[in-house]
């Protein structure tokens, strides 16, 4: 048989599939490319083709105490939200999957409900509740609000892992002499950990990027980065916004990569 005869016939379906993927990828990446161009271009407006390369917007971003305070606050809040939502979401998922609770379906839907409500309403409702309760708008109120939104992500990923979890692995451990506590720490926890931490990464990013919920809950001088950026944009629509976006993207990316290195998100999960 000749080599030519062996060549695969042109597959229109496959070509269309490939083209669709390329288009989707371009659609996802194009805005980032524009942000990069805008961030590096010295003019205070988007001009194409760019007139040069300059770091002036990055300098402006890093020199601004407003931006820096907001950045640190956002990171700090996101870190707290990560820890809280991992603990709460993980515990909830275990209770829902294992606890034999009455009304489990309802409870699951209930815990997922923050995702279904428009976040802006969640923010406004919490804002009013806080004011009515007379507690003002403390930073922990903001963290709680973000956690509320982030917990469903952890719940989802953990439930997914628990769903595929072979209960007999825990029984095997028990039969081998592991007490219930040791079964949990030696077997259950390590096995659901990838799901919990994948949810944790989502939680971090959901909090770090959170705008609608934060909008009403931040107080003057303690505003998170997305809120500061939004308000900055109303007055100065310059490259500092793009520089800030780049920094945000890189930070979020490095958190994901760090988590992946530290925890090994896909080390032993068949995804």
């Amino acid at each position: 048989m000749s080599a030519a005869a062996n060549r695969k016939p042109f597959d229109a379906g496959r070509a269309a599939y490939l083209a669709l993927n390329i288009v989707l990828l371009a659609f996802l990446l194009a805005p980032i490319a524009i942000v990069i161009v805008f961030a590096l271009n010295p003019t205070p407006f988007i001009s194409f083709p760019p007139v040069g390369v300059s770091l002036r917007w990055f300098e402006k971003f890093f020199a601004s105490s407003d931006f820096m305070n907001a950045l640190w606050l956002s990171l700090w809040v996101a870190a707290c939200v990560l820890v809280l939502s991992v603990v709460i979401g993980g515990a909830c998922a275990l209770a829902l999957a294992r606890g034999n609770l009455p009304g489990r379906t309802f409870l699951t839907a209930f815990f997922m409900s923050p995702l279904m409500l428009p976040a802006i309403l969640t923010g406004l409702a919490l804002f009013q509740s806080y004011l009515l309760a007379g507690i003002g708008r403390p930073i922990w109120g903001l963290i709680m609000a973000h956690t509320l939104i982030a917990v469903p992500y952890v719940l989802r990923t953990t439930l997914a892992v628990l769903h595929n979890f072979d209960h007999r692995i825990e029984e095997a451990a028990a039969a081998l002499g592991a007490s219930p506590a040791r079964v949990f720490f030696e077997v259950t926890l390590p096995l659901i950990q990838p799901g919990v931490f994948a949810g944790g990464v989502f939680a971090f990013i959901v909090s770090f990027d959170q705008f609608p919920v934060s909008l009403f809950l931040v107080v003057p001088k303690s505003e998170t980065l997305p809120v500061v950026l939004y308000n900055y944009m109303k007055f100065d629509l310059d490259g500092a916004i793009a520089a800030a976006s780049m920094v945000s993207i890189l930070l979020a990316l490095s958190v994901v990569l760090a988590m992946e290195r530290l925890i090994g998100l896909k080390a032993y999960v068949k995804l």
């Binding site: 072979d166 007999r168 095997a172 081998l176 002499g177 592991a178």
Partner: peptide, 15 residues
């Protein structure tokens, strides 16, 4: 966990 019995499952149930 105090019964001192070995158990082998159809699904192996390895860690």
């Amino acid at each position: 966990h105090r019964r001192d019995m070995g158990m082998v499952f159809q699904s192996y149930a390895l860690f």
